[in-house]
Design a protein around this nucleic acid. Structure first.
Length: 221
DNA sequence: ATCCCGAGGG
DNA sequence: CCCTCTGGAT
C-alpha cells in the first residue's frame, strides 16, 4: 500500500493497521452498565484502570444506582475511592454527577455529548468514553496519548483536543472512532511513548512523519 | 523521578 | 493560559 498523502488517508491507514496489531483492544474499566462506566471513568483520571477496578466493586455494591450515590455520605465515598487519588475532588464529582443524573435525566445516563459534559466531573474525554464503550454511540476520546499520536502521525496539526476530536470525526467512519481511540491509547502506552518512543518496534514507522529512525525520517535537517 | 485514558477553577 | 487536586506502581 502506498503511503497516504492526506491526513484523512493517514487516519484510515493508521486505523487499518492498528486493528491488525490490537484486534481485541477493549476498555479495561470493569462495568456492567453505563452508570458504572461513568463512575469508573471519572475515577480513572490520573489513575490506572487496574487501580480503579480495585475500588469499584465495593462502590457499585454500596451504590448500585445513581439514586443511591446521589444520597451517599461523602465521607464514606471518600474512603471507598481514596486509593485512586484526587479523592476529594472525585467524590464531589461523583455525588454531583449522580444528583444531576437523577434530577435532570431520570437516573438514566444521557447520550448527547452536551448533556454528558454538563454533568459534574465529566469532560469531553469521559463523555466520549461512555458514548463509545457503554452507549454504542460514536465517540472519539482525546486524551494525552491520542493527542500525541495523532499529531506525530500527521493526522492533525491541531493541538486543541476539541479540534482534534472534530477533525478525526470527519475522517473516520463513526463506528470506527471508539476502537481507533482505544488502539491509539494502547499504542501510545506500549510503543509511541511520550519520551523515547520505540520507533524501531512500531508498525506505523514507515508512514510516520515523526519517526526517529534516520533511514526513514523524511525530513532531515 | 515519572507516569497513570482529566476536570475545574482562577 | 496556568494551576491544583492526589495515591499507587515502577
Amino acid at each position: 500500500m502506498a503511503k497516504p498523502r492526506t491526513p484523512k488517508g493517514r487516519a484510515r491507514e493508521v486505523a487499518r493497521r492498528l486493528a491488525e496489531v490490537y484486534p481485541d483492544a477493549h476498555c479495561e474499566l470493569d462495568h456492567a452498565n453505563p452508570y458504572e462506566l461513568l463512575v469508573a471513568t471519572i475515577l480513572s483520571a490520573q489513575s490506572t484502570d487496574a487501580n480503579v477496578n480495585k475500588v469499584t466493586p465495593a462502590l457499585f455494591a454500596r451504590y448500585p444506582a445513581p439514586e443511591d450515590l446521589a444520597h451517599a455520605d461523602p465521607a464514606e465515598v471518600e474512603q471507598l475511592v481514596f486509593t485512586t487519588g484526587f479523592y476529594k475532588a472525585k467524590t464531589r464529582s461523583l455525588l454531583g454527577m449522580a444528583n444531576r443524573l437523577v434530577e435532570e435525566y431520570g437516573g438514566v445516563v444521557p447520550g448527547p455529548i452536551e448533556d454528558l459534559v454538563s454533568l459534574p466531573g465529566v469532560g469531553r474525554k469521559t463523555a466520549n468514553v461512555v458514548r463509545s464503550v457503554a452507549l454504542g454511540l460514536p465517540g472519539f476520546a482525546v486524551d494525552t496519548h491520542v493527542q500525541r499520536l495523532t499529531q506525530r502521525l500527521g493526522i492533525t496539526t491541531e493541538t486543541d483536543p476539541v479540534a482534534i476530536e472534530r477533525e478525526v470525526n470527519a475522517m473516520v467512519p463513526p463506528a470506527d472512532l471508539g476502537p481507533l481511540g482505544l488502539r491509539l491509547i494502547l499504542h501510545g502506552r506500549r510503543v509511541c511513548t511520550a519520551r523515547k518512543p520505540k520507533c524501531a518496534e512500531c508498525s506505523l514507522e514507515d508512514i510516520c512523519p515523526a519517526s526517529l529512525l534516520p533511514t526513514r525520517r523524511p525530513k532531515q535537517a
